[in-house]
Simulated assay, not measured.
Amino acid sequence: MTIRAIVWGENIHEKSNAIVGDLYPEGMHGAIAEGLNAAAGIEATTATLQEHEHGLSEARLAEADVLLWWGHAAHGDVADEIVERVCRHVWSGMGLIVLHSGHFAKPFKRLMGSPCNLTWREAGERERLWVTSPNHPIAAGLPPHFELEQEEMYGEPFGIPEPLETVFISWFQGGEVFRSGVTYKRGAGSVFYFRPGHETYPTYYDANVRRVLENAVRWAHDRAPRVTGVNDAPNVPVNQALEPIEARGPRLHADGEAGFK
């Protein structure tokens, strides 16, 4: 079975910053999709903020197994209608992988129900990611730790709910640590937040980062059919043909002992 993934990106830094444009001529979303398409059994397409409905129509999300989200400069420009649509599909069973500064994206904050705030510093520091759950599917095939020579620092406290699992913890040259890979369950959907991915560094070409994203897509994919009516709260009346429990009196069992049946 082919896993269908959508890689969503703002596609702003790539157009406005020459460094980013040179690093990612097809956009960060394009580089991420390229890495996923090199993996067996994954078919990744892209969508951007500038497209109609941000490239996330109802029909397209209904066909997607996993959505990857990178945002930074234009969180506020994402239409609330699309945010609710994404959340509904996650609740129904679509996987969601939120990347780097997507911690402040509207869909992630909506699903977390918390500020998702943190401390940060842009100084091109080394990041060492420690695998804290070596048996987790997202960590499959990774060494005990791996390094990115230059990355933006994110530091604790990280204003997220207590994760279901913490798969990675980062250490930075300045001494900070950060929960860099955390999982959640929201409705029927699996959610993974992964920290690395600052736009001015070639993070999404790194082999270990690509392995994490491939593993995360496979982990977030739910083979079960989508749950329907996730926003419904139907009234289910008592079936009048059933005898209310209160009306039942004691009856004799076959062994002669009294009891309710």
Rank of each mutant, 00 (worst) to 15 (best):
L68T: 14
E127P: 06
F172Y: 15
M153C: 10
F168R: 01
T119G: 10
D206P: 04
P157V: 14
E176R: 05
Q150Y: 08
G95K: 04
E147H: 03
E125H: 15
T132Q: 00
R195M: 08
V98I: 10
A139I: 00
P163K: 07
L129P: 12
A139P: 04
A139G: 01
E176H: 13
E147R: 12
S170K: 05
L148S: 13
G71L: 14
P196Y: 11
W91V: 14
P143T: 08
Q173V: 08
E165M: 02
G124C: 15
E152N: 06
N117H: 15
G189S: 07
P163M: 03
Y184R: 02
W70R: 13
E81Q: 08
A105F: 04
E162H: 09
R85V: 15
C116A: 13
L142E: 10
L96G: 12
M94T: 12
S170C: 09
I82N: 02
T119M: 07
H103E: 06
P161V: 09
L96F: 14
P143A: 00
F192M: 01
R195K: 05
P202V: 10
V167D: 01
H103Y: 05
G155P: 13
A123M: 02
A123E: 10
G155Q: 10
P107M: 07
G95H: 04
S133V: 00
A105E: 11
P144K: 09
F178M: 06
T166G: 02
C87V: 11
L148H: 11
D77I: 01
F168W: 02
L148C: 06
A79T: 14
H136I: 01
W130A: 02
G155Y: 07
L164G: 02
D80L: 05
M112V: 02
G175R: 07
T183E: 14
A188M: 14
H145W: 04
H103V: 03
G124A: 00
A188Q: 10
Y154N: 10
H72S: 12
V131A: 03
H89V: 06
H72W: 11
E199C: 13
C116V: 03
S133F: 01
V131K: 01
Y184H: 02
T203D: 15
A105L: 13
S114V: 05
G124D: 05
A140K: 11
R121G: 15
F146L: 13
K106F: 09
W171E: 07
G187C: 07
G124L: 00
F104V: 12
A140T: 01
R179F: 12
H89D: 13
I97V: 03
W69H: 05
M153H: 11
A188D: 09
R195I: 05
P202A: 03
T200Y: 04
W130P: 01
Q150C: 00
S101N: 09
Y205C: 14
S92G: 12
V90C: 03
R128A: 06
R195G: 09
L142K: 11
V191T: 02
I138N: 03
H136A: 04
L118W: 08
M94A: 08
E176I: 07
E125S: 10
V78M: 12
